[in-house]
């Protein structure tokens, strides 16, 4: 049994806690001008930490802050402890309260001490295994393959004005960071599964191939089983709000293709257009540049 279950933290509560902490990482990271790799690393190490640590005993705000601080250091965009604390407090307490505290020298000193302690706690928990893989490169490379290029071109022509196929893939990939998939699957597999999922949801045949033999997703040792497994997790955990994990399913907007799109599609496709999902959406925007 996991530590969190032992401590009576239900899966739904655990999920909600993670969501809000990851949200904080995304917003504070953006305020600090950190890039998507640094923030992605921060989120991955956050998941890794709480895979073995209790939410009841480890302040998620503090740990999230330490993960962000470490993400910057590990990905060569270090931010000072002071800046990280400021950005996180601003996000959490709002400018007024945070501004007051941050002007207090003792508060800042204490916060720094705690941050440094948390930083080491995270490193120890990770056993210094800090080389984090990210799925962005794999996704972009896959989308450039002939078989998939045809898919998104055709999709774009058939649905002018709608969210592009690539954008849906990237949205889903960004959302995938909210799940601890990084603990279970290699980053490249998650990337491929995101594309596959979007194709499934859009009812695009997935049996495509560049050479007419090997399926497009068959690289990096990807198995069909894993593909389905990751895909199910993504759809269930991200977009079925019942277990407290969801929350990105918003009102259907004109962006949705006809006829009667499945619920999941709305979740994947609707966000950027309608802009109704707040935090999650901004996190997605960080990766827009990937499409450029």
């Amino acid at each position: 049994m996991s530590v969190n279950r032992k401590h009576g933290v239900s899966p739904a509560l655990e999920n909600r806690m993670k969501r809000s902490a990851i949200d904080l990482i995304a917003h504070a990271g953006k305020a600090l001008n950190m890039d998507h790799v640094a923030m992605g690393t921060a989120v991955v190490i956050f998941h890794r930490y709480y895979a073995t640590h209790s939410f009841l005993l480890n302040d998620k705000f503090l740990i999230a802050m330490a993960c962000l601080y470490l993400g910057g250091k590990l990905e060569d965009t270090p931010k000072s402890a002071r800046d990280v604390i400021t950005a996180c407090c601003m996000r959490r307490y709002g400018p007024e309260v945070a501004g007051l505290s941050l002007r207090n020298h003792d508060f800042l000193t204490a916060a720094r001490e705690r941050l440094f302690l948390a930083e080491r706690a995270v490193l120890y928990a990770l056993r210094f295994d800090v080389a984090i893989e990210h799925p962005f490169g794999t996704m972009l490379a896959a989308l450039r393959r002939p078989a998939l290029t045809r898919v998104w071109q055709e999709w774009g022509q058939a649905h002018p004005g709608s969210v592009s196929f690539q954008q849906m893939c990237i949205n889903l990939l960004n959302d995938s960071y909210k799940l601890p998939l990084c603990l279970m699957f290699p980053a490249c597999h998650v990337a491929l599964a995101c594309i596959w999922t979007v194709m499934k949801v859009l009812r695009i045949p997935t049996r495509l191939s560049d050479d007419g033999v090997t399926p497009w997703w068959q690289e990096h040792g990807m198995q069909h089983e894993d593909l389905k497994e990751i895909s199910c997790m993504l759809l269930e955990r991200l977009y079925h709000a019942d277990d407290g994990a969801g929350g990105t399913v918003g009102p259907v907007s004109a962006a949705c293709p006809t006829p009667t799109p499945p619920k999941q599609l709305r979740a994947v496709g609707v966000k950027r257009k309608a802009g109704e999902t707040g935090g999650a959406e901004e996190y997605n925007d960080l990766f827009d540049e990937l499409l450029a």
């Binding site: 590990l74 930083e119 295994d129 080389a131």
Partner: peptide
């Protein structure tokens, strides 16, 4: 040593660890 410059774990050391792990 940690905290010589008041910025927690030494970035240089982290970088060395990260790269050598790969």
């Amino acid at each position: 040593r940690v905290g010589e410059k008041g910025e927690g774990v030494n970035v240089t050391a982290l970088r060395e660890v990260k790269l050598l792990r790969e």
